[in-house]
Amino acid sequence: MSTKNINRKELVLNAMDNKPVERVPAGFWFHFLADEIHSDAFAQPELTEELLAGELKYIEESQPDFVKIMTDGFFPYTNDSFIKAKTAADLKHVKPLDKDDKWFTYQVEYAKKITDKYGDEIATFYNLFVPGTILKFMQPNFEDGEPYLAALVREDKEAVKQVFDVISDDLAELAKRVITEAHVTGIYLSLQNLLGEGITRELYEEVFGPGERKILAAANSVSDYNILHICGYAGHRNDLSWYEDYEVKTINWAAVVEDVPLSEGKKLFGGRAVLGGFGNTVDDVIYKGSEAEIKAEVRRLLDEAGTTGVILGADCTVPRDTPRQHFDWVREALIEYSK
């Protein structure tokens, strides 16, 4: 479907600013590598070419209003002192990366290849994970990540705080560099509540909060347009109120998983712009719905949330094999709704 008469990037930025828009913008995202969690593009640069090819093909075919720049293969924190740490006590000896480390330079180079081609047309948000999520991803079995991290915090929270401070400094540096050097619009920072025995909001705020806020502050220092993603992937439940005072322009959460619609979330987050609305599983309408069903869901979401400060998307990554035509149907419904 043609989008030539609309400046899609301006559409997204106006929505994030809670300004009136010609039509509500939309975008969806999914993974491109077969194993997005354990792939290591720092060790295998050819994976970045596969990732880039998939991202560019999606942009060309689907013409989204914005793109979350996927970071499959860049999930690991390739810091030798961190990788070698075996105990909580070892974490106290982790040192920050050198500024010319490939962990920075590879990611900046990759992001720039996308913005050089599409940065003037669409808004681009570079995906970053907070330290807790990175640590969970780096466990051999993903399902063991959450209990491992919770146990680590219970064992020695001071050691965890110390290593999170180091990792957050590097993530803050990366956030600033993808914005200032790769010229992305902003970052898309993914986090979630830590679940487990003895894990309270107060403990989370003490151990996790400072680093997460530091990353956002760094991004906010060089861009007004950053997104917070409260991840409900695979049914993970979050207390959204833990993040209501995080400084960020736009919030994306799992509206379907949490059963918190866009309008309710908009109130919770002080009227800031919101992103999402659609579920992201094979059982949800964006994946299996007919044209009529998908367009009806668009109308339902906008009837409920309004058209100001709203960007339609999904709870999280949608299945890789979601028919691309479904994204066209969403855009068609948005155009029809605006008339």
Rank of each mutant, 00 (worst) to 15 (best):
T3L: 10
N7W: 06
L11I: 02
L11N: 11
M16D: 09
N18F: 06
P25H: 04
G27S: 15
W29K: 08
L33T: 04
H38N: 14
D40P: 03
Q44C: 02
L47T: 05
L47V: 00
L52Q: 07
A53M: 09
E55M: 15
L56G: 00
M70I: 11
F75N: 13
N79D: 04
S81G: 07
I83P: 00
I83H: 00
K86D: 06
V94P: 02
P96G: 01
K102W: 00
F104I: 00
Y110P: 07
K112C: 07
K112F: 05
I122P: 10
N127V: 01
L128R: 04
F129L: 10
T133Q: 13
I134E: 08
K136N: 07
M138V: 07
P140E: 09
G145R: 10
G145F: 03
L152A: 01
R154E: 12
E158L: 07
E158P: 01
E158Y: 07
V160F: 03
D169E: 13
A172D: 00
L174E: 06
A175P: 07
K176M: 15
T180K: 10
A182H: 06
T185K: 08
Y188T: 05
S190E: 15
N193R: 04
T200A: 10
L203D: 08
L203M: 13
Y204L: 02
V207A: 02
F208L: 12
R213E: 05
K214H: 12
I215Y: 00
A218D: 09
Y225G: 06
N226I: 12
A234D: 14
H236N: 09
R237V: 15
L240N: 14
S241W: 02
E244D: 10
Y246E: 05
V248W: 04
K249M: 02
A254H: 06
A255V: 13
V256F: 01
D259Q: 14
D259E: 15
V260W: 04
P261T: 03
S263R: 13
K267A: 14
F269D: 07
G270Y: 03
G271S: 08
G271A: 02
R272S: 05
R272M: 07
A273S: 14
L275W: 15
G276N: 09
G279N: 04
N280C: 15
E293S: 04
E297V: 00
R300N: 12
L301T: 08
A305P: 13
G306L: 09
G313I: 07
V318S: 12
P319A: 13
R320D: 15
R320Y: 09
F327I: 13
W329Q: 12
E332T: 10
E336R: 00
